[in-house]
Design a protein around this nucleic acid. Structure first.
Length: 462
DNA sequence: ATCGGCTCGCGCAA
DNA sequence: TGCGCGAAGCCGAT
């Protein structure tokens, strides 16, 4: 373990560890053993203290509308991570309940020298961290293992758009885009007996909506994530410039793995460099993987109401306000959207793709969200419905990317004004004619509307 | 096929 | 203070 974690990647709360005692790494955003700065930091501190280390995971019995689909993906992936941690002489302690309370309880059992944990700008995660810092007896170190450039280094404020953020990322890449150390077995074995749930008991205790079933065509976990990356780099990366055609297989399909932290974006960039890849396709991919992904953490970090109309920029709120009473061409209920029952087969196909596959093509996601704005009575409803559907069906729901992407579509976040028109005001407009200009709309509709309804979750069956 | 206008405000040059 | 320019577009003119 020669390369240490850059201290600027760590926010130190309540100082440095003072005594030799176990180190706990509380994993709640980065579910991986490999390429994980939080774990590297925990191990580095444990080595310095001559102490053992344990990883702790706490399953919240319900979380921001997550369903069986997302819990299943997380837990199956975590089983594999538990194996690789065991091989590194690090136990995975699992609990169930309110995460902040459970971690505090564990701290009073174990009296750790230090708790290391993941950075996450979502409000609920900030609250967890705040509770831990407030009440724990030991220091807490918060590590940004999500972004290549730690969010607090990249920018101290909410960025106006990608243009203002991009140079700040590139300025710091040299410093932070460094290789990860290999996770060697930890020399100090964990000895104190401590209660842990099993994967079986965690599954048995789940109190979530099981009408949204796990996806069957995608395996979770670190190995599957790596395989998905290899396939993308070998087969599809050259087609990345055509990614806006949802009929083409040109996207990375890495979003679910990135969301659960089963793969590190930094490791992806390092792999691209190792393969000696460059050119237009690579530049485009890195722009999305790094600049725009990290911009979404910036938006949520510096916008308390990242999932509310109040989080939209001033000009967009003013414009939506002026068009509040515009007649809508169609108005659908939450349930009609959910069941893909609009007049528009293209929209329905997108909703079906989301429901069936757990992902929505990035281009269609914009169209999908903008039409929800157009076909609801008010922007507040549109935002609520889009977020609810995304969080319910998407494997990468409840992620900063999702909130930011929807806020871009409905609220002009990181965008500029465009021609004024009904309902949208000066928010950028999209329609099916544009899609027809760009790709074979009927083929996309055929792909997703001819699926057998038996493959759909119970909640969308007639 | 390609171009310009639509519309907004940041960040930089002056 | 003025000016260039931008996360994914649309539309009408040429």
């Amino acid at each position: 373990m020669d390369n240490l974690v850059n201290p600027r990647r760590v926010r130190v709360h309540k100082g440095e560890p003072q005594r030799s005692a176990p180190v706990v790494y509380w994993m709640h955003r980065e579910f991986r053993g490999k390429d994980n700065w939080g774990l590297v930091r925990a191990r580095q501190e444990a080595l310095r203290l001559g102490a053992p280390i344990a990883v702790v995971f706490c399953l919240a019995p319900s979380f921001l509308g997550a369903t069986l689909r997302q819990y299943d993906f997380l837990l199956r992936g975590l089983e594999e991570t538990a194996e690789s941690l065991r091989a590194a002489n690090i136990p995975l302690i699992m609990r169930s309940g309110d995460p902040a309370e459970e971690i505090l309880g564990l701290c009073s059992e174990l009296h750790p020298a230090l708790v290391v944990t993941d950075f996450d700008p979502l409000r609920i995660k900030r609250k967890w961290l705040h509770t831990l810092i407030e009440h724990s007896a030991c220091p807490v170190h918060e590590v940004d293992s999500r972004n290549i450039v730690p969010a607090w280094i990249a920018s101290s404020h909410r960025e106006f758009m990608a243009r203002t953020f991009r140079p700040k990322i590139h300025r710091h890449l040299q410093e932070f885009l460094v290789p990860y150390p290999v996770l060697d077995p930890h020399p100090h074995a964990w000895s104190s007996p401590v209660f842990s749930e099993t994967f079986f008991s965690l599954r048995a205790g789940l109190k979530v909506d099981n009408r949204v079933q796990p996806v069957t065509d995608r395996e979770p976990g670190e190995t599957a994530a790596q395989a998905a990356l290899d396939t993308f780099l070998d087969m599809r990366l050259p087609d990345y410039p055509f990614r806006n055609d949802p009929n083409k297989q040109a996207c990375s399909n890495l979003s679910p793995y990135l969301h659960f932290g089963m793969i590190s974006a930094q490791a992806i960039v390092l792999a691209i460099r190792r393969h000696g890849l460059d050119g237009e396709a690579v530049d485009g991919f890195i722009e999305e993987l790094v600049v725009r992904r990290e911009l979404s953490d910036n938006f949520c970090q510096y916008t308390q109401e990242y999932d509310k109309v109040a989080g939209f920029p001033e000009w967009a709120r003013r414009s939506l306000e002026r068009h509040r009473r515009d007649p809508r061409p169609y108005v659908y209920s939450d349930e009609q959207f959910d069941r893909a029952e609009t007049h528009d087969m293209l929209w329905n196909a997108a909703q079906r793709q989301l429901v069936r596959s757990g992902t929505l093509h990035s281009y269609m996601r914009m169209y999908w969200a903008k039409k929800i704005l157009e076909w609801t009575e008010k922007p507040e409803h549109a935002l609520e419905i889009a977020i609810r559907l995304n969080d319910r069906y998407a494997l990468d729901g409840r992620e900063t990317n999702g909130y930011t992407g929807i806020a871009w579509s409905i609220g002009g976040v990181h965008d500029r004004g465009w021609s004024e028109r009904p309902v949208f005001g000066t928010i950028r407009y999209m329609n099916a004619a544009g899609c027809r200009r760009k790709f074979d709309v009927n083929r996309y509709i055929r792909t997703w509307m001819t699926e057998q309804s038996s493959l759909l979750p119970a909640s969308v069956q007639p």
